[in-house]
Design a protein around this nucleic acid. Structure first.
Lengths: 216, 216
DNA sequence: ATTTGTATGAAACAATTGTTTGAAAGTCAA
DNA sequence: TTGACTTTCAAACAATTGTTTCATACAAAT
């Protein structure tokens, strides 16, 4: 574990950069939040840019440790994997373990900085490869490009609830938006996706038994 | 038409704020791009914040004038409307008439500033209401919340190609991403959505005759 | 030609910014 | 106890920032 001051700086940097971006976030504000001297950034990280890069890496670790994908066995059915994937990804979007970490990763995903391309790639690629593999199991004859298109449709639905949450809340109100909890959204995205894949009747194969529906 | 200097300032402000955000974008850089004196911002707009608000309104006008929705008649079938909606929205995302305008609106949608909430609402609401009305025609017995969920799934797919374009390019490469042109993405999203709605065989009803497929 | 109003510009201001510096305090090993 | 090393701090620096000011140029009306 790193130095406690360094850790607090990373935590504060993550929050400030998540809220305001690299240029909008100031070294002084980060140090104030971290309870550190303004010189500490240069002492521990070299300069503001290197702090930013470390903060993105820090956010990446927090995002991938939060809600892990289950360990599937070779005989886990692909529909089950698809259900698990959607549930995990939607949970990460709607109930992130660290909102600041996710927000910073979302910023980098929307507008990657050159220095963080590797971090973003390491964040996206494992998920993307798993989804591509699931879709290939479900559609062995499809071309790779079509599988990507399906994958983008699936991921686009999940990301909407994080990236466009203010829009959704604007349309249905904050109270209305609360009704779209993780379980309901997960169930909807899974059902929508299965319908698109021509597997509309297979929803139970995707869901765990304890997600028996109670909503009208 | 407003004063040419004022117009150039708005244009430059839109670009700079789109790229760097409100705090990251400086008055001096905007004026440099506009070929105007730094005092011009305060002369024409009062201060930086008011310039920002006007730039967002300016972007809003550009976005809504670019690719308009068709004027449907009362007997236009809902599947045709759905197809048109997806095509128009996807075109706006993949081939915006003004990339800077769209990027600034996307920024405001992802992280609305208090002063621009009305502008964002005016941007989103007409599209949202039209989509909600189309979905209601297609599913008269559905509850409003479920229609919203479907709407979010449709819009999430379209937005993905704008908001997560760097991710997609990271996964499939820039050259690979070029293959996902407007027609192909539109066709895919429409097909995906119809499948989800239990209307998988109705794709031709959504598409115009001249979009006869030529791709492999 | 003169007056009035508009637009532009250079310069200045106060505040903020990222970074550096040398001193002081704290910690650890010998 | 002493010396070496690490960490923290206040202060300072140069650069940038948003805004203001006053002078100048230009345009329009009389």
């Amino acid at each position: 574990m790193t130095d406690p001051t360094q850790e607090r700086l990373l935590q504060a940097a993550e929050e400030v950069f998540a809220e305001k971006g690299f240029q909008g976030g100031s070294v002084r504000e980060i140090c104030k939040r971290a309870g550190a001297n303004v010189a500490a950034v240069n002492y521990y990280f070299g300069d503001k840019e290197r702090l930013y890069i470390e903060a993105v890496k820090y956010a990446h670790r927090a995002c991938t440790q939060g809600t892990p994908l289950p360990n599937w066995t070779p005989d886990t059915p692909p529909l089950r994997k698809l259900g698990d994937f959607i549930r995990v990804f939607t949970t990460r979007m709607l109930q992130p373990s660290s909102a600041a970490s996710l927000q910073l990763m979302m910023r980098e995903m929307a507008q990657p900085t050159a220095a963080c391309v590797e971090v973003v790639r390491d964040y996206i690629r494992p998920m993307a490869e798993r989804l591509q593999a699931i879709l290939r199991e479900l559609k062995p004859d499809a071309v790779a490009e079509d599988l990507y298109l399906h994958g983008f449709s699936i991921v686009g639905q999940c990301l909407f609830y994080r990236q466009n949450r203010p829009i959704a809340a604007l349309l249905v109100g904050d109270e209305g938006f609360q009704k779209f909890d993780v379980e309901r959204v997960t169930r909807h995205i899974t059902a929508f996706t299965l319908g698109a894949l021509g597997l509309a009747d297979r929803l139970p194969d995707c869901l765990e038994s304890e997600t028996a529906e109670v909503a009208r």
